[in-house]
Amino acid sequence: MSGLFTEAFLTSLVLGALTAGLPLMLAGLGEQISEKAGVLNIGIEGMMLFGAYLGFLVAYATGSVWLGFLGGGLGGMLVAAPMALFCIRMGLSQIVIGIALTLGAEGLTALLHHFQFAQSYPRLPAVETLAIPGLSAIPVIGPALFDRPPIVYLAVLAVAATAYVFRSTQLGLALQAAGDKPAALDAAGVDVVRVRTFAVFSTGFLAGIGGAFMSQVGAGIFVPFMTNGAGFIGIVLAMQARGRPLWVLAGALLFGACLSATTALQVAGVSIPTDVIQMLPFAAVLMVLVLFGRRASLPPALGTHYVRGAR
């Protein structure tokens, strides 16, 4: 336990929190957009997983990290497409279709992985980092936060951009109305179906990139079922953040720290079975729900299908 507060330990803790937290943040951010527009997106776990698979596949085939992330985003949108069609257009149960998409993505990626990579288990080379001059020289935080792959900075910018869109744009207002009172949005001449479809595809894109981050940056390899509930944690983050993207960022880093405690403790020479550590984030989520459950506010029209003229 002597090395618990050395610089190496602290750096690996912060770095781990960021690496594990970033996919959660992207998932939470994406889910928040869906929820704001009145769509409870249970399929987000499947979107992340498919993004992780396709991102890995593209990065492995082309050797380009950026194309990999683009592939991840597209992978997430591929899973979002049936969600948009079945739930937004046809009005099928968002929960049933969400479960189906998650199960389907799990099965499909595991199958594809089996036929393509199960013999070779190829790895990707480490993703190049971009050191921000000045900031990266700060001890502990510098190397952990400001010498990261460029996608990290972009993802944080995406949080700020989403916050701006929610607060100050027509689109943000439309998203909010689609979740709060879709009939009013319809009366104002905005197509509810179109707004919600946009929201679901945004979720797919962000969750897919989050998944691709897990396979490309976090692990360097695709393993079946690798998202392991990250999408569901994203749902909780979105609920607790109550429509505020910056809170998603903070919550994701907190959960990321829980998730990454294993590696940090190993650096410090403490060995705990990984299963104990895997319980931490979920235990933390439940604790948050016990303490603040009542305060998680959700849009009134969440999970309901909008039919014009129906009462």
């Binding site: 046809m90 099928l92 279709i97 199960l103 993505a105 799990e106 099965g107 499909l108 199958l111």
Partner: peptide, 16 residues
């Protein structure tokens, strides 16, 4: 894992 795919398709067909 193929069974998972079948179940997923089954759910979606059910909805349709």
């Amino acid at each position: 894992f193929f069974t998972l795919v079948v179940v997923a398709i089954l759910l979606i067909m059910l909805g349709i």
